[in-house]
């Protein structure tokens, strides 16, 4: 936040990163690579959503699957059951996702849930949604929902994976810009103050309940975008995919690995994790769940040795280099 009074220094690196990544399909257009990148960007989006609430606000959710799944199911069901246009379904899914965030936030924060109690509360919501989606005929039950393949721009379906990649990258970049803007706003300052010390924030006039509600609503909206895009990209989902713990874990792991409460943290974390997990698959072959074992090990290492994530390590390195030169 400090040293970024200059808008070029604040927003420039984000646009630069978008430009570099955006050139990727032009250089190496292998479908496998693009597929992996799109998935990593979807995770990055979910993680960016989580990071607003968890990274900046210090409210650790274990249940962001609730918002991801709500976004995914809404976009799919509105199209398959009600014949709604894909783009309108997408927008509606994000709206529903943020309303669910608002509702869960209202219930949790009004009853004063903090720390691990808040985490468990959100986990419970996600699990309830998963079980309901799995049981209800409306959501397709255990068979899941299949969005009809109909490759036309009007249906938000494209033949080229590069287009999906660019859309995902555009979404991630837009959220990064919003994120940076929040860092430079009063809302951001109050959110971080709540993370650092809620009582002190109250004494300074911060309506902590309102700020946390705004944060969880925005957080849920972004993660719902991720879920809606997932549904649109894979055209299939079931309860385990949409509301399963895997996405809650990925959404919180990426910012922790990348750097909590930073603009680049969730994106670097998500891309890094997926790069590592692809590599291990190449090395170890297909051992089921090996990437989860690796994630666990990485998490232990990061929490023990690099609390501030990859971004924190880079900052330390830069400080050391600058110190060496001086």
């Amino acid at each position: 936040m400090r040293g970024q009074a200059n808008p070029v220094r604040a927003y420039g690196p984000i646009l630069l990163m978008a430009a570099v990544l955006g050139a990727l399909p032009l250089l190496a257009a292998s479908n496998t690579l693009l597929n992996a990148m799109v998935l990593a960007l979807i995770i990055a989006l979910a993680a960016q959503g989580w990071n607003i609430l968890g990274g900046y606000g210090g409210q650790f959710s274990f249940g962001h699957a609730a918002f991801f799944g709500m976004g995914a199911y809404c976009t799919a069901i509105l199209q398959t059951r009600f014949g709604v246009n894909a783009y309108i379904a997408f927008a509606a899914a994000v709206a529903v996702g943020s309303l669910v965030g608002l509702a869960i936030g209202y219930l949790s924060f009004r009853s004063g849930l903090r720390g691990s109690y808040f985490a468990l509360g959100t986990l419970a919501f996600a699990e309830v949604f998963r079980i309901l989606a799995n049981a209800s005929a409306f959501t397709g039950g255990a068979a899941g929902v299949l969005i009809k393949l109909d490759v036309r721009p009007e249906t938000f379906q494209f033949a080229s994976r590069a287009v999906y990649f660019w859309i995902a990258l555009g979404l991630v970049t837009a959220v990064m810009l919003v994120n940076r803007w929040i860092e430079r706003s009063r809302f951001g300052a109050w959110l971080v103050a709540i993370r650092e010390n809620e009582d002190a924030a109250k004494a300074l006039g911060v309506d902590t309940f309102a700020v946390k509600l705004k944060a969880i609503t925005l957080s849920a909206a972004i993660t719902a975008v991720s879920g809606a895009f997932y549904a649109q990209y894979f055209l299939f989902l079931d309860a385990g995919i949409a509301f399963g713990p895997w996405i809650s874990v990925e959404a919180l792991l990426a910012p922790i690995i990348g750097g909590l409460g930073t603009v680049f943290g969730p994106v670097i974390g998500a891309l890094g994790l997926h790069f590592v997990s692809e590599m291990t698959r190449h090395v170890t072959g297909r051992i089921p769940g090996i990437d989860l074992v690796l994630y666990g090990a990485l998490l232990v290492v990061m929490v023990a040795f690099a609390r501030d994530g990859i971004i924190g390590l880079l900052m330390k390195l830069r400080a050391r280099l600058a110190g060496g030169r001086a």
């Binding site: 400090r2 971080v192 103050a193 993370r195 650092e196 010390n197 009582d199 002190a200 004494a203």
Partner: peptide, 9 residues
């Protein structure tokens, strides 16, 4: 009750 992770400013 400082916001320990933030600068004085």
């Amino acid at each position: 009750q400082p916001f320990a992770g933030l600068s004085v400013r």
